[in-house]
Design a protein around this nucleic acid. Structure first.
Lengths: 216, 216
DNA sequence: TTTAATTTTTAGATAAGACTAAAAATTATT
DNA sequence: AATAATTTTTAGTCTTATCTAAAAATTAAA
């Protein structure tokens, strides 16, 4: 179908184009650790294949066909992440690199059977939604833990910070997707919070509270 | 580590070199659907990397390092085949193509965790042995069904013919790896056999009997 | 054992994808 | 608005892995 390189560009543009009319060559180069000239070459190719609209000197954006393609890659990536964490005991911070490889395996049957085997998960281990076989997904109403009211509780559904250090910090405190979280107290002067995660009472910083998303 | 192309050549040489002192360029080209000139190029490269010994005009053979590498690729391939059949409901004849892709994913942790998840299977769905993480495997004592004595029984441990048609034929008659098989009768004039597979009594041709291997 | 047939290698070309350096276009600044 | 700074593209090179066609080596046959 498409080369691994093409797929990686499609994915990068998809993640960058959120809202924006056009994504610039340099933005793509930055995200992919490549040079602008390489990006230009690929944008022409993606435009030829009707996967992206490309306006020289202005940037590019995925066509509907390109978005569809991106959704399938993301679907595979996130399903594999669920598999690695739930079945193979990987931790949050270890899955990405391997999922980057697995997402390029071409077999519609493989993807759909994996989906079934995992019992049609709606979100990956970071809380990001998993598109179904038609590319559709529900963006759940999540709110940052730093935004909810005192005493309120919710279920951890996602994180915005996916750095290794942060994910390991969460693991250490046994804060995981699906954890029941209640906000007990918030210090006004520094925004730090006292919360209950499942049964443990812990203190978290403002930055952490802003990085955790819950469904209320 | 090694490119996908290199890995495919290593695998091909490994399967061809059984016993033989050297595998010829043309044999490799034939197995890989490529041209002899491409094989020559790659043999030089593998020799440079100390993965194969290459004697111009004579052929090549894997070094110990090459054999080790081949075993790891085969280990991954066969583990994925088990996964596809046991967990994702693939049939025998559907797994190969997908496993060919999955075997190139680089992550030692992935391979070993998959092995654990599948409970350290000793054989793949075709009965071929799966090397352990050190590259060792036990070649079990299997014998063709056509060779055993009347009345004797065994467990189906492998097939030599892996054509789609043959595997589908076996599925149709519910003959699968691990099936308890007993030889009831053999016609001398054409070598066909009457057998019991688990609970079903069926007739099979000489060719089929020669293609089924059992552990007695 | 000399010629014929086959196999293998070399030489040169091609395609994908990435790079550097220079040129061109765009945006920002005075 | 003219110049400076930045961004983007073009042109040309490199690497990997292929291929074709021709040359060289090996093997088979007369």
């Amino acid at each position: 179908m498409h080369s691994i390189s093409e797929e990686n560009y499609i994915k990068a543009i998809y993640h960058l184009q959120d809202g924006k009319a056009l994504v610039s060559t340099n933005e793509i180069a930055g995200r992919m650790n490549t040079k602008a000239s390489s990006v230009t070459d690929m944008l022409k190719k993606l435009a030829d294949k009707n996967l992206a609209e490309y306006v020289p000197y202005k940037g590019a954006r995925l066509t509907d066909k390109g978005v569809q393609c991106a959704n399938q890659i993301i679907r595979k990536h996130r399903l594999w992440e669920v598999f690695l964490v739930e079945k193979l005991d990987f931790s949050w911070d270890e899955v990405h690199e391997v999922a980057e490889q697995l997402e390029h395996v071409q077999s519609i049957k493989l993807t759909n059977e994996l989906d079934r085997f995992l019992e049609y998960p709606k979100h990956d281990p970071h809380g990001d939604p998993i598109p179904d076989s038609n590319g559709h997904y529900e963006q759940h109403t999540q709110i940052a833990l730093s935004q909810i009211e005192l005493g309120q509780h919710g279920v951890l559904t996602g994180v915005v910070n996916t750095s290794k250090d942060f994910l390991q910090y969460l693991d250490k405190h046994d804060i995981k997707l699906g954890s029941q979280i209640q906000l007990l107290e918030r210090e006004e002067f520094d925004g730090s919070c006292r919360i209950i995660s499942d049964t443990d009472e812990i203190y978290i910083s403002k930055l952490t509270a802003e990085s955790l998303f819950v469904k209320i």
